[in-house]
Design a protein around this nucleic acid. Structure first.
Lengths: 201, 201
DNA sequence: CCACATCTGTAGTGAACACTACATATCTGG
DNA sequence: CCAGATATGTAGTGTTCACTACAGATGTGG
């Protein structure tokens, strides 16, 4: 029994192209024709490799969140809660306006509302956003334990807040906000975290 | 020359139903079949009255923003910048989790990313969100002139910030966040505005 | 070289989509 | 009561969609 004809395209490279299409047009707005053209393959190759359109999205999300989680590790490595928030939001301002990618964030652009038959796509994206929120929460719990955040602060609420701001920035970026505008938002947003930080005296 | 057969349905009532469908499924996810069923009419009536699907969306957005602007007037009537932010974000936490409506905000759920042929839909929504941001900015400009906000504060950045937070809250609401979670976000977010407020001594 | 397994390109499939032709119904103005 | 104008319901239109049948190509194990 043989092992069959080998694949002629690089799956990860193709995923990068598919990611960009989903990022720009959303799950429902992206068509198989656009995806296959961007990936440089024909539909049967796509379906053999990823199952269906939703499978392709999940694979693209896996790749996206994998890279993103590596970056989040650097973010939560910042020394204080305030520095974590600043590093995250300023970094997001830069990433979401990086001309190498479509504006905004795939976890938002992918699909906030979907039609019948794709109802679980928004949930899928929300679940991935929640992962980042959990990382932030864990970091803020630690900050509170270390006395970096006030004893009255709520780490989970702070994490939700930072997550909400980053989502809002993503929407703004996708509708044309430039880097400076996003940095201003980040700069203001950080002050709420600072207000929850213990006084340095 | 006669005036023709009168319309048999209430256009504003039908718009309310269409609004809910767009709100729940987004522009691309909403089908004409769903819309006509919810509106209780047949396709020719829809097209005679609203032109096409995008015309129906714009009419629904007009209605939505009209009601919203009335509420925004109440928001900016609050006595201080901090109170404005609090009234707005707390109100949004309640509105976006009102069981009478789909969760989130139509100006976000309507469509952040769209496929080819509907590229201007996200712009249309962004333009309406920008209206609210402008109202906030004007209010914060006044607050700065009144000495309510610090001389170093940036009213435009503050308005962008509050707008970004409300968008982020909308996305969270649509993916299942409950009222209490949103209120916590709002509560934290207000502290950034407070940090830009002049000291009360 | 052969049996088998997997991939690839061509060329479609049925279904769902936004939208409409048309006949009929219901109004106003004269 | 008639002529013109607009609305309505039925029943479609062509197009685009996600997805696939099939035949040929390209690999492995014996």
């Amino acid at each position: 029994m043989g092992m069959g004809r080998p694949r002629e395209f690089d799956a990860e490279l193709a995923l990068d192209q598919a990611m960009e299409v989903f990022w720009r047009h959303g799950y429902e707005g992206a068509t198989i024709a656009q995806l296959t053209e961007a990936m440089g393959i024909n539909p049967p190759s796509l379906y053999a490799c990823f199952g269906n359109k939703e499978g392709l999205l999940k694979a693209a999300l896996d790749r996206y969140t994998k890279l993103r989680n590596i970056w989040m590790e650097e973010v939560v490595a910042a020394p204080t809660a305030r520095a974590v928030a600043e590093r995250m939001l300023m970094g997001i301002a830069d990433k979401q306006t990086d001309p190498a990618n479509p504006p905004g964030c795939l976890l938002v652009q992918g699909g906030i509302a979907c039609g019948s038959g794709s109802e679980n796509v928004p949930f899928e994206l929300a679940a991935r956003r929640a992962q980042n929120e959990d990382q932030l929460r864990d970091r803020f719990v630690r900050a509170k334990a270390e006395g970096d955040l006030k004893p009255t602060s709520d780490p989970a609420a702070l994490a939700r807040y930072v997550s909400a701001v980053s989502v809002g920035m993503g929407v703004m970026a996708s509708s044309g906000a430039d880097r400076e505008a996003l940095r201003q938002v980040a700069s203001v947003a950080v002050q709420a975290v600072e207000a929850q930080s213990a006084d340095k005296t």
